[in-house]
Design a protein around this nucleic acid. Structure first.
Length: 281
DNA sequence: AAATCCGCCAACCGCAAGACT
DNA sequence: TAGTCTTGCGGTTGGCGGATT
């Protein structure tokens, strides 16, 4: 049996004034507990503690069994799919860890809680916003989850400009057939000196599998004003700016979304020049 | 090589609700 | 019905160990 005994609250290992042990479980204790639960079942934890002679509380026995010894406990890194599940379920239920854990076979509420605290709250700090704020929830929904989805499904199968409404794209959006994956790349169209000139626009170019351009969306169409910043948004789009601590190409991150659940992730440098645009399915 | 920092995660705690007597 | 016990949940702590300085 793979038993870790090095980690944990070893400073408290020993017995308290009641003769109860605290801190990490030893291999011997684990064996005793497993043997007992296997033959008598995982109920009446105080009686488990008494009958086994373990100098542990019933609570401690229960926790050790549920979080570590249970045969169906799944160990190892949280997968991308599991991360998406956690983010999605947390957006619905909040800190209902045990409820969330029920939808992730083999994962414990403790593990999910730890994941949330170490990864998600850290991310909120990097974005300089409260983990319960609307801004951060939007960032999770419109940035993080799509990024995870992207990592599972390559962009060529993910980006689909047919999800952009006709009113946002201008004429002939139907050039992309429903459900047909298209490739997405970025490029500069037009002319001018770039930053600040207001004459050069960064376009999103959609290509079908043969490389034929299907639809271009200029930054102007998406609401950029002549200073090439983001203050002039197109109607129907909300936006939210974030400062990126790290992890991205740009210093600023802008998320745009509309009521049709169409979103755009945009990375900008300090001068608000666009470094990268991504439509997210 | 030593010191410090920091992420990870096992395990503890307090509280609330349900079960039992 | 009231008191006690048990279970389950969410929040928090703090040591380990790898990374960085």
């Amino acid at each position: 049996m793979d038993v870790k005994v090095k980690k944990g609250r070893s400073i408290q290992q020993g017995e308290d004034e009641m003769g109860l042990r605290k801190g990490p479980w030893s291999a011997e204790e684990d064996t005793i507990l497993v043997n007992h639960v296997t033959t008598h079942g995982d109920r009446r934890w105080n009686s488990v503690a008494r009958c086994t002679g373990l100098k542990r509380t019933g609570k401690s026995c229960r926790l050790r069994w549920l979080n570590y010894l249970r045969p169906d406990v799944r160990r190892g890194n949280i997968t991308l799919q599991e991360q998406i599940m956690i983010l999605d379920l947390h957006s619905r239920w909040g800190n209902r860890w045990s409820k969330i854990a029920q939808h992730l076979p083999g994962r414990t509420d403790n593990e999910i809680k730890n994941y949330w605290r170490t990864r998600v709250i850290k991310q909120a700090k990097q974005l300089k916003c409260d983990v319960n704020s609307k801004e951060f929830k939007d960032a999770l929904r419109y940035v993080w989850m799509p990024r995870l989805i992207e990592r599972i499904h390559p962009p060529s199968e993910t980006y689909c400009p047919t999800r952009i409404s006709p009113s946002q794209l201008g004429p002939n959006p139907s050039a992309c057939a429903d459900g047909v994956p298209v490739h997405h790349q970025h490029g500069l169209h037009g002319s001018g000196s770039g930053s600040g000139s207001g004459t050069e626009w960064l376009n999103d170019i959609y290509l079908d599998s043969s490389g034929v351009e299907l639809q271009s969306v200029s930054s102007e169409q998406l609401g950029h004003n002549s200073n090439n910043n983001v203050s002039g948004l197109c109607p129907g789009f909300n936006n939210q700016m974030f400062e990126q601590g790290n992890g991205g190409d740009g210093d600023l991150l802008e998320i745009l979304w509309n009521d049709e659940n169409i979103w755009l992730m945009r990375e900008l440098c300090d001068e608000h020049e666009i470094i990268k645009d991504s439509f997210l399915a």
